[in-house]
């Protein structure tokens, strides 16, 4: 299952992230996961939220450059080497992972892993074939 992820353009300056989360808070959007990678001037904040469509509309109204894109969320099996296995499955099938991050949900033991590949449909199919648990509902 592909889930919606918000991508928001932010400059690398103090308060930039707070401006995004302020807006989401104001509109009552609940953040499930967030990731920003190390950048110099600007970056893209990746956020998984409970109401992606509304959040997108709200952020845009506030003047942010934002878009929704589809990412894959999986729940790796709780055993050593399960991430290693996941990356091998992707790599061996010629799928490139563009970025990945993980997050923990309350009352659950295992973190979810969220990632974006260069061929989302194929990646999903392979995960399904291999019996990996892709997350449907966050």
């Amino acid at each position: 299952m592909l889930i919606d992820q918000l991508s928001v353009f932010v400059e690398n300056r103090h308060g930039a992230l707070a401006a995004v989360t302020d807006a989401l808070y104001r509109y009552g959007v609940d953040i499930r996961a967030i990731a920003v990678f190390d950048t110099t001037e600007f970056g893209i904040v990746r956020i998984v939220v409970d109401k992606p469509e509304e959040a997108l509309k709200d952020l845009k109204a506030d003047g942010f450059v934002a878009k929704l894109s589809k990412v894959i969320a999986v729940e790796p099996i709780d055993k050593p080497g399960s991430l290693n296995e996941l990356f091998h499955i992707m790599g061996d099938n010629g799928i490139n992972i563009e970025y990945i991050y993980s997050f923990v949900m309350r009352r659950r033991e295992m973190p979810y892993v969220v990632f974006k590949t260069d061929n989302q449909e194929k990646a999903l199919q392979i995960l399904k074939d291999k019996g990996l648990n892709t997350v449907v509902d966050l």
């Binding site: 991508s7 600007f42 878009k67 894109s69």
Partner: peptide
């Protein structure tokens, strides 16, 4: 100022 949200797929596009 950036205005095109289509460029947010990857950092490389920016």
């Amino acid at each position: 100022e950036l205005i095109d949200d289509n460029l947010l797929e990857s950092f490389g596009q920016l």
